[in-house]
Design a protein around this nucleic acid. Sequence first.
RNA 1: GGCAGGUUGCCCGAGCGGCCAAUGGGAGCGGACUGUAAAUUCGCCGGCAUCGCCUUCGCAGGUUCGAAUCCUGCACCUGCCA
Length: 419
Amino acid sequence: MTDPVQPVEVSVPSESGFGFTLKTRLASSLGRTGTIHTPHGDIRTPAFIAVGTKATVKAVLPETMAELGAQAVLANAYPLYLQPGSDIVDGAGGLGAFMNWSGPTFTDSGGFQVMSLGVGFKKVLAMNTAGLGNDEVIAEGKSRLAQVDDDGVTFTSHRDGSKHRFSPEISMRIQHELGADIIFAFDECTTLMNTRGYQERSLARTQAWAGRCLAAHDQLTSLRAHRPYQALFGVVQGAQYEDLRRKASQDLATLTINGRGFDGYGIGGALEKENLGAIVGWVCDELPESAPKHLLGISEPDDFFVAIENGADTFDCVSPSRVARNAALYTRDGRFNVNTAQQRRNFTPVDSDCDCYTCANYTRAYLHHLFKAKEMLASTLCTIHNERFIVRLVDDIRASIDAGTFAEFKQDFLGRYYA
RNA sequence: GGCAGGUUGCCCGAGCGGCCAAUGGGAGCGGACUGUAAAUUCGCCGGCAUCGCCUUCGCAGGUUCGAAUCCUGCACCUGCCA
């Protein structure tokens, strides 16, 4: 049952302070462990990156995130550009300094908002359901807050209705001001509702933007040489189509501007759960092994195993935090809602196998009470638990790869979680 | 003692002859949430149940083809005047 571990040649981080070192590799799949080196510290991979969109992991102190084992946090360019403004974050000394997080940071490009405020506006981003029909009709909704064209995106601020223009160059400029260690190319995140035709056109656009991002990034890196080095990850789109995904990966892998290529890659798009492993596999198969790969927006337990086996190194997702604020908690025996009547008199911890602060000190009955009483401590305690649960799960997967017990760990964990 | 107003489903509160098992909130119950417009959101919420049937709008009578809605009496509550 053990999966033989293969030794891996070690690459040394460059003088920029950024680099990726492989440690072990599974013999039977693309799964591997390693370390991403950044100017603000290392990230041992696979790793779950906590999301703090607006420079805060909602309801939790940064110190608490560090204590529960989060290695890095990811914020988002678009919301921070709207408020407080990337110049202010820049003035504070960058994202980490601004939010009092001393470890590595990521920022997303605003590409997700092209979808969530555009075609996906007011829709649930279903990952389990088969795609509905034609997007192009759905995509023409009038009330949406984002309009895409080949040059960029026009956003309407949800806060005051003001119009804002994002382009690859603008996203790069903002992300340089935010100053995260790892930043993403500006892309269009498509949905399951899009047609093949739309996916092709959107992908062509995203690929063109990738080149523009790289060029802008190269320039900004020179201009801001006094700042810590920022690594740029290109984002692979192409939906569920193998040919599109492979071609997109190849093109990004070979793209260089002034001798500079991408430092790593993101894998994006709304993905059907059933295709997740295949898609990640196609992409990682085409991209250089030596590059770190970040799967954007994924955090269900079964998804981690599948994605890691297929070569993904890091993940970020709002789910552990959002779901916690809505009373859903992860346990080794599956997910449950702590606000149901069933938990009213349950004086046991959320998960007796959990080592988080919440499980060490509080009962389900108390958390149930906090939700019913609408006390904000509910969000804090539940977020601590969920973030710890997910961070630890990925840490455990990493340990199992190094120990050669990945297959057993996977079987044990999933067997119990989905029993 | 006089005058006026009120009593609606767990709570608050609309309705003022038929389209009313009865609008809205809240509470309660359950679900969803995957690069965060999310402390959000969606169902259910008298009973039994397949359309449908049965019992509800303080209590008791009455008018009417038909009443939560109109009339009479009773009970309780609230203002103002004594």
